[in-house]
Amino acid sequence: MTRSDDESRRVYATQGLIDLLLERAAAADPARENVVLDATPAGEFDADLGVDPATPVLTHFYLPAGRAVSDVFGVDLGTPAGRGRARFLTHPQGPAELTRRDDLAGVVLLAVPPWGTETLTAFDRQGRRLPLTVLDAEPPVESLPE
């Protein structure tokens, strides 16, 4: 794989999001976590992140709406349509690889114990490892329209 191929497959996420996801994983242990993630284009950050402005940076997640809601309506109402093309999954007992039982997305962040960045890995939907860069940056503040 050439350097440009490696860079084009790189996954970016904010430190704040990663910290929060790992805290959720530790709190849920021994249960698994399965959370939909969403991104903000790098160009929308106040600071220059040093990447192309169109590069997606994982910045936030959607709380699961609950099994009862999806069972009744047949869809996850906790995720806005067209959003959430990434997931955060945990394997409290391992393995540190995607399995056939996992919900897949274009990008999957997978964590195993001990819950830290050193045991967090990014994958594509085919289970290939992707390079992950954690950025110490705050996403833009969002507000609801009045």
Rank of each mutant, 00 (worst) to 15 (best):
P56A: 09
P80T: 07
R125D: 08
L37N: 00
V51M: 11
L132P: 06
L22K: 00
W115L: 06
S70G: 05
T14R: 03
A39T: 06
V51D: 10
V57L: 00
N34T: 11
A96S: 14
T117K: 10
L109C: 09
N34G: 06
P30G: 07
L58D: 00
L22T: 09
R85D: 12
V35D: 00
T99N: 07
I18V: 15
D46R: 15
S143Q: 13
P80I: 13
V36S: 06
T119K: 15
G116Q: 06
A13V: 06
V36I: 11
L21C: 05
T14K: 01
R100H: 14
D6T: 11
L89C: 06
R128G: 10
P64H: 11
A96Y: 03
D102L: 09
D5S: 07
G106C: 15
A28M: 09
G74Y: 10
R83T: 14
L104D: 09
A68N: 00
V51A: 10
E7G: 02
V57C: 00
N34E: 08
H60R: 10
L17P: 02
G43F: 05
A31T: 01
D52F: 02
Q93M: 12
V108C: 14
D76F: 03
P139T: 01
D103N: 12
L17Q: 05
S143G: 09
A65V: 04
T14H: 03
A42S: 00
Q93N: 12
L58A: 03
R67C: 00
D76R: 10
H91Y: 11
V11A: 03
G43M: 03
T79H: 01
T133K: 13
V57R: 02
P56I: 07
R101Q: 15
T14M: 09
G78D: 12
R3G: 13
P114W: 08
V36K: 00
V112H: 05
P64M: 04
Q15I: 01
V112D: 01
D29N: 15
A96T: 11
P92R: 02
D136L: 08
D48E: 15
T99G: 13
R85I: 00
P113Q: 08
T117I: 12
D76P: 05
Q126P: 05
S143T: 06
P131L: 13
A27V: 11
T121F: 08
V51H: 07
Y12G: 08
R87H: 09
Q15T: 13
A111H: 11
T99M: 04
L37W: 00
